[in-house]
């Protein structure tokens, strides 16, 4: 019996039962843009960057199980256009001032904006007023950059078994909270050793006193565009960014 496969932008890509379109693409070293997906965690399909067209329907590649013979459109002007608009939405929703961010150069949001040639935020900025939480001795939380991917939520709940992070509010008021009546990270059992400390794709969860260690030009996405780093993205469980 031959292995089942999908046709990804015309290319046959094999998969095993239970794999999603994203899993199959990653295993074949094909890049599908994504932010909330992480190979180690249960897919959640909220950022919608991985929107592809499967048999003519727009779907999330990270949540839709692959089916034999499925025709999937990924790298097309229409989809990249939509993904760029989604990025622009994320950029105006928060306060993303890359020049002053420690994560710059290692940030997935920024790297995807480069990959998809996003030159401006396009929409009017929301400039939300979000206070930072510097209470914890090891870690700074800068909520201005949160894209609500819930990776820290999932890591803390499913791996660390601490549930330090959660989301509250609704709609555009949705926001990240921590597991303390005071609302301060220092009053939780969070530690830099937690998995959740190392999964933020943007610059929200930052180790104190260690920023800007790598010079410009040597940072992860200075070296190579994110679209060329599929193998590393797929192997993220072992090699986590700090």
């Amino acid at each position: 019996m031959t292995q089942p496969s999908i046709l990804l932008d015309g290319l046959p890509v094999p998969f095993v039962d239970g794999q999603t379109i994203m899993d199959a693409a990653m295993a074949a070293d094909i890049f599908i843009p994504h932010l909330c997906h992480h190979p180690e965690f249960k897919p959640q399909g909220s950022c919608k960057l991985c929107t592809v067209k499967a048999n003519g329907r727009y779907v999330s590649a990270c949540t839709l199980p692959a089916r034999d013979g499925m025709e999937v459109e990924n790298n097309s002007p229409d989809l990249n256009d939509k993904r760029r608009t989604l990025l622009q939405m994320l950029f105006v929703e928060g306060n993303h001032f890359c020049p002053s961010c420690e994560k710059s150069g290692n940030c997935m949001l920024q790297a995807l904006a480069y990959e998809l040639e996003m030159l401006s935020p396009h929409f009017d900025q929301f400039y939300p007023n979000r206070a930072v939480d510097a209470s914890h001795p090891e870690v700074l939380l800068d909520f201005n950059r949160c894209i609500l991917c819930e990776l820290c939520v999932r890591a803390s709940r499913d791996v660390d078994r601490k549930s330090v992070f959660s989301l509250s509010g609704r709609g555009i008021d949705k926001h990240l909270i921590v597991n303390a009546e005071s609302g301060r990270l220092a009053d939780t059992d969070f530690s830099w050793a937690d998995k959740a400390a190392h999964v933020c794709p943007v610059g929200v969860i930052l180790k104190k006193r260690s920023g800007f260690a790598v010079p410009i030009g040597k940072r992860r996405y200075d070296v190579e565009p994110i679209g060329m780093q599929v193998e590393r993205l797929a192997a993220r469980s072992a090699d986590e960014e700090s």
Partner: peptide
């Protein structure tokens, strides 16, 4: 909007 996905959360605003 429940705010779960990017397009609806930001787009409706």
């Amino acid at each position: 909007s429940c705010g779960f996905c990017t397009p609806c959360r930001v787009g409706t605003s």
